[in-house]
């Protein structure tokens, strides 16, 4: 090699045996070793690509009605590569591939937004409650207890009916449900963190409680929070699909996997199994993938038996 290349040199140098590995490097290695989790991760990436760029592969959009296909769905709307309707068409002659892309995107977004709300609200609430302790903690957790014993699915449906069905309402409602158990978990972790020396040191140097919570407690919650948030995503997706299945969720022409499954299920006797099959496939694979990635993350970040 004619010129000096620091990167190549660094690559060739054997890793120093005494060099400490961070918690996150360790976790990443453990995760990469977990075959099921890696396969699930790949599946998730593929589904995400499908949801956000799948539209580019078809000339149809999910809202245009092809009137020539209405009523002859079972014979003419069959999935085929020749007509370009890869997944067939639905009852209204709309391209099912485009609608599945759209539905997957919405379901994915609902899952991610719901668990983001849980992460932000739940973590802060739990950390504040756990850190302050005493009577404040008691009151804050009692509120969570009360809210938890309310069947929120029903209240959410109540809200959707009262304030009109909109995507925003759905996001708000699902976010409202999601943060409760996250708050409990974050509080439990905070209780053990707040007695550590670094927090004591911060208190001794006169750092304000809010700063301690944000700068010292919350970052140390990250592992547990990430694991739980990943496991929460499929739960949120199921919630949304459940509501959409009942016809109370997203409204036409927008759609979600739950709404598509509901449509497919209602057409079950009409010889159009693809209407149920394709949305169902993406739904099940997506949930499976999230479960396995969540499980893998838990084993990687918070291993009980090393």
């Amino acid at each position: 090699m004619a010129f000096h290349d620091p990167t190549a040199e660094a690559l060739q140098r054997p890793a120093h045996p005494d060099k400490g590995r961070s918690l996150w490097t360790d976790a990443r290695r453990r995760f990469a070793r977990n075959r099921a989790a890696m396969v699930a991760l790949v599946a998730l990436v593929l589904i995400a690509l499908f949801a956000f760029f799948g539209q580019l592969l078809t000339e149809f959009d999910g809202e245009t009605v092809d009137f020539t296909l209405i009523g002859v769905n079972a014979t003419q709307g069959v999935p085929s590569l020749e007509t370009g309707h890869y997944f067939g068409t639905d009852q209204e002659g709309r391209d099912l591939y485009a609608r599945t892309v759209q539905g997957t995107r919405l379901s994915l977004m609902i899952g991610i937004v719901g668990s983001l709300v849980a992460v932000v609200v739940g973590t802060l609430y739990g950390a504040v409650s756990g850190y302050l302790g005493g009577r404040v903690d008691g009151a804050m957790m009692r509120i969570v207890d009360v809210l938890m014993s309310i069947p929120f699915m029903f209240v959410l449906i109540l809200m959707l009916v009262m304030f009109g069905r909109s995507l925003l309402m759905l996001f708000i409602g699902i976010g409202l449900i999601s943060w409760l158990s996250m708050a409990r978990i974050a509080r439990g972790q905070t209780l053990s963190i707040k007695n550590k020396e670094f927090v004591e040191a911060a208190v001794a140097t006169g750092v304000r409680p809010l700063t301690i919570i944000l700068r010292h407690v919350v970052p140390n919650l990250a592992g547990v929070v990430i694991v739980y948030a990943t496991l929460l995503i499929p739960e949120m997706i199921i919630y949304e699909s459940f509501i959409s299945f009942l016809g109370l969720g997203v409204q036409e022409p927008n759609t979600s996997l739950g709404a598509l499954i509901s449509r497919g299920a209602s057409q079950i006797g009409n010889g159009v199994p693809w209407q149920l099959g394709f949305p169902l496939f993406f739904f099940v694979v997506m949930l499976f993938a999230f479960f396995f990635v969540g499980d893998g993350l838990r084993d990687a970040i918070d291993p009980k038996d090393r």
Partner: peptide, 22 residues
Amino acid sequence: AIGASVLPNFVLAPVLVLVFTL
């Protein structure tokens, strides 16, 4: 058990009807 836990009842119900009824 893992398989069944990703099949919420609104997914399972139509599949059951498809198999056992139709």
